[in-house]
Amino acid sequence: MDKDQLEKTILPEEERLGEDLISPKVLERMWKKYERQTAAGDMIRFTLNKIGEAAAIIKKTSFAVGILGVLGIGYCVSLTAHFTGPEVIHLHHSHPITPEMVKESMTFLASLSRLSAKTSFVGSLGTATGSLLDFASKRGLKELEQSVK
């Protein structure tokens, strides 16, 4: 798949900002609302960083991009380009996150969500994966309980 073909798979703005997208403006507003409250602000900041990282983890392998491309998730191509610049370093070093970066990352996540409804993706992997998700949840919880004792 060449660059032109991939660009054609980029969804129009209206479609990308579909109903399953949590508006970047909401997240931006939330960040401003809680940034001075240290526990809440820090968790929101971490969440925003993870959004950026989740979008940035795609490696520039043609098959990964190709698979997502034929599924209509071509947007990751422009994101890959976007996040291979200094923005990656910004995200990883907790420098300010621009609203534009949040918007692009959220759009990417929304596209992936459309790709696979929650239950069908996890469900299609079988019970072992469901159990592992449960395991991660329990382990996180156990450590949290110990931390606040």
């Binding site: 959004i51 983890i57 795609i58 990964a64 929650k118």
Partner: peptide, 22 residues
């Protein structure tokens, strides 16, 4: 909103791990 965002993050990471391993 944050909880739903986290579900999306987890799904995105899992899907990307799978796609990259193909």
């Amino acid at each position: 909103i944050l909880v739903e965002t986290w579900v999306k993050i987890i799904l995105a990471e899992a899907i990307m791990k799978a796609v990259e391993s193909f």
